[in-house]
């Protein structure tokens, strides 16, 4: 008996020391963000910590930040979705075509009156969810790799956007629509939308059985199937949700720019994946958090903003961003490898 007690005491010791380490690992990425902010406050006290600049960072982060939320679910399930930029573009042009003001010249649907803003919103969400569901069911039911399935959708989505618009941008949206790029008081609406998406996705991933199965599928897909999880249906839902958030991002994008062209958001999928990855979501599946995706998006936002304020050559900006992504994954791999 005393033997067992000894063992348990030993076990207690393990938890304490590994707990503080785990904390450091878990929140280390926040430290990086804080460090960046502190450095910028010191270096650029007049231009960086102004409300205007802070909101600017948040607005800029919100579009790929929203996509990074959906991407987190996808990557936790051990998948990838490289189609979200194209999905955003197609959802965006359709939404814009349904949300043009009566005054628009060369209206897309000349005979269509001004639609209530809910119409383009629903259209964007449905298109996003539908294209995502196609991704998900392809992966789930044919077993093709997520990269291939969404590579197909990356090309198809862009093609659809070009086909739909004949390659021309769609502009002059209703004020109700551009509201999504505006402000309530001092707070930008994109930031509010982003915040709502964060809360909903956080609850979805942490407090629903769907969220639990996302982790289970990523951690061990075979075990998930044996345990009674409907893997195929859940995979479809994961990609549908990711696509739907691309639809949400499309609304914010259209609202902000007041115009959507079919080439919009090219490469955004990579920024979303980068944000998710920097936030500690593991491409080996089963590991990842929503707050990590948020912090990752903010790190990228602050980085881009800072480099601009510091007048760093934009070409260098890209190189630095790339380095940070790779370093983040190296750190992530190392911390997961150590556990074995």
């Amino acid at each position: 008996m005393s033997k067992i007690q000894n063992k348990e005491q030993g076990g207690g010791g393990i938890t304490v020391s590994s707990h503080s380490k785990a904390l450091l690992k878990k929140y280390g990425i926040v430290g990086v963000l804080i460090l960046m902010v502190v450095v910028m406050v010191i270096v650029k006290p007049n231009s960086f910590p102004t409300p205007n600049n802070i909101f600017n960072i948040l607005i800029q982060s919100s579009i790929f930040g929203i996509m990074a939320l959906g991407m987190t679910l996808v990557i936790v399930s051990k998948g990838i979705d490289i189609s979200v930029g194209s999905v955003l573009a197609f959802a965006g042009v359709v939404a814009a075509s349904l949300g043009q003001a009566a005054t628009a010249s060369g209206k897309f649907y000349p005979s269509l009156g001004e639609m209530p803003v809910i119409v383009p919103i629903l259209a964007a969400l449905l298109i996003g969810a539908f294209l995502g569901a196609i991704n998900g069911s392809l992966i789930a039911y044919t077993g093709i790799p997520a990269f291939i399935a969404t590579l197909g959708m990356l090309t198809i989505g862009r093609g659809l956007a070009l086909l739909y618009t004949s390659g021309k941008p769609i502009s002059t949206l209703t004020p109700d629509f551009t509201f999504f790029g505006g402000k309530i008081g001092v707070v930008p609406v994109p930031v509010i939308v982003y915040f709502i998406c964060i809360v909903i996705t956080w609850i979805l991933l942490n407090n629903t059985s769907f969220g639990k199965s996302v982790y289970a599928i990523g951690a061990n897909i075979k075990a998930a199937e044996v345990s009674g999880i409907n893997v195929k249906r859940n995979l479809t839902m994961i990609y549908a949700y990711c696509g739907m958030l691309a639809g949400v991002a499309a609304i914010v994008f259209a609202g902000r720019t007041g115009s959507v062209h079919p080439g919009a958001a090219t490469g955004y999928e990579l920024t979303a994946i980068a944000a998710t990855t920097i936030g500690g979501t593991s491409h080996a599946g089963g590991i990842g958090t929503i707050w990590g995706a948020v912090v990752g998006a903010l790190i990228l936002g602050v980085l881009r903003n800072s480099l601009t304020l510091l007048s760093v050559n934009p070409y260098w900006q890209q190189i630095i961003e790339g380095l940070i992504i790779v370093v983040a994954v190296v750190i992530d791999m190392r911390k997961n490898a150590k556990k074995k």
């Binding site: 199965s213 951690a219 061990n220 075979k222 998930a224 044996v226 009674g228 999880i229 089963g286």
Partner: peptide, 17 residues
Amino acid sequence: TDGIFPMLSILDNMTTS
């Protein structure tokens, strides 16, 4: 290979089914 979810918690492993 087809039982555990290695990186998930004991609680999550217990409650999946």
